Amino acid sequence: MSLDPDLSAFLELVEANALSGEKPAMYMMTPEQARLDYGASTHILDVPGPLVASVTEITIPCRDGQSINARLYKPTELPATTALCPVLLYFHGGGYCLGNLDSHDSLCRSLAALTPCHVLHVAYRLAPEYRFPYAVNDAHDAYRWLLMQGFAYGLDSTRIAVGGDSAGGTLATGIAIMARDEGWQPPVFQVLLYPCTSVWQDTDSHQRLARGYLLEADTLQWMFKLYLRSDADRTDWRFAPLETHDLSKLAPAYFILAEYDPLLDEGMAYAERLKASGVDTQVNIYSGMVHDFARLGNIVEEAGQVRQDLADTLAKAFYHENNRI
């Protein structure tokens, strides 16, 4: 399918602004400038999220004695299953350098309201101030906190799904692997929106879609240069899940991929590895879409559709016993 016409018009505008010098490409900005731009664009590109019963700000302690912030969304209604409620532990995208609790507020509200379930959205620490593996450790610490302290918020530690978009999806995959390897209560499900999974960005989709499709090659490498301490970190499975030797006995996974996303091929490659390892894996490729389309509610109708699709899939994982591990 050709690129969605509304996306095409939007990308032409982005290109015109770059050529005129009105707005430089992200990789030409400082991290501080890029964060401000990313935050400002959120309110232009995405719709406000739906109302939920409550939003609670939470502080989670980390292994190094510091703490990170998180936001817990409680839906207005939940099925009368048990006293404790299922929860999605969510990590935002932004190449480990951008994004915060506000940039993905609409998406998290939607998933909480539509599933329905609680959503715990974690603001892991960002590069370059905090390079690899800080984001990974923060994600793992948030999962451990949820296992040990979630009950105080009415959350069911036996019904935790992990999820995220882009770099956040990578963090979610790492939790599934870590929980298995360290003998922690495993998540019941993974929801992975166009995750980063590969050591090098050299696939066919990276080459075909290197420029002009929202996520550009130069921007991606700019982000990874800020995040990684050296090229040696690239081969660490916590950065590149495709480097994981054993992907068996992991939580079922649901992939959201986009036809015009440079990350398409590596997302497909990771899904195929999971399938070959015996993991129940579903893949949904959205035709005509680009990277980060789930946050483009003011640009494409598919942003609303993907949220409903994710919610329907999460509901099955949370409320149907035969989908539990």
Rank of each mutant, 00 (worst) to 15 (best):
H320Y: 12
E259I: 05
I177C: 13
P50L: 05
C117K: 02
G95M: 05
K275T: 15
G94E: 00
Y90I: 02
T235F: 14
D105T: 07
L72M: 09
P79V: 09
D141Y: 08
P48W: 02
W222R: 02
T197G: 03
V122H: 01
F91G: 02
V55E: 12
P128Q: 12
D231R: 13
G154H: 04
E272Y: 10
D312V: 08
A294S: 13
V162H: 03
Y124D: 06
V279P: 06
D181L: 12
A167I: 04
V55Q: 10
S110Y: 04
P5T: 04
S103G: 02
G267S: 08
Q190H: 09
A9V: 03
D265W: 06
R229W: 07
Y227N: 08
W222V: 02
R131Y: 05
D105H: 11
N322F: 11
A271I: 02
S205G: 08
R125L: 13
G94S: 09
L314F: 04
D4W: 00
I60R: 04
D202V: 10
R159I: 00
G93L: 05
R35W: 07
G288N: 06
R71D: 01
T203D: 11
D102T: 10
Q207H: 14
M28K: 15
C108M: 03
L264N: 06
D312F: 06
Y27P: 00
A179R: 02
R109P: 01
A135I: 01
V52R: 05
P61I: 12
K249V: 09
Q282S: 15
T82W: 00
R208F: 06
I325D: 02
F132D: 06
A240I: 04
F293G: 02
T219S: 13
A152E: 14
P186R: 12
L89A: 11
A240K: 07
P79L: 12
A176C: 15
G94N: 08
R109D: 05
P262D: 08
E32Y: 08
C62W: 00
V122K: 01
Q185Y: 01
L19D: 14
V122G: 03
D156C: 12
D138M: 10
I160T: 00
D218M: 07
A34H: 01
L310R: 00
D233G: 10
L107H: 08
E272K: 14
L11M: 13
D138N: 14
R63D: 11
I256C: 11
R125T: 09
D312L: 12
L155M: 08
S106E: 06
R144P: 03
V162F: 05
E301S: 13
F189C: 12
V283H: 06
L101E: 05
F91V: 01
G93P: 03
W145H: 13
E243M: 15
N322L: 13
P24T: 04
T59F: 01
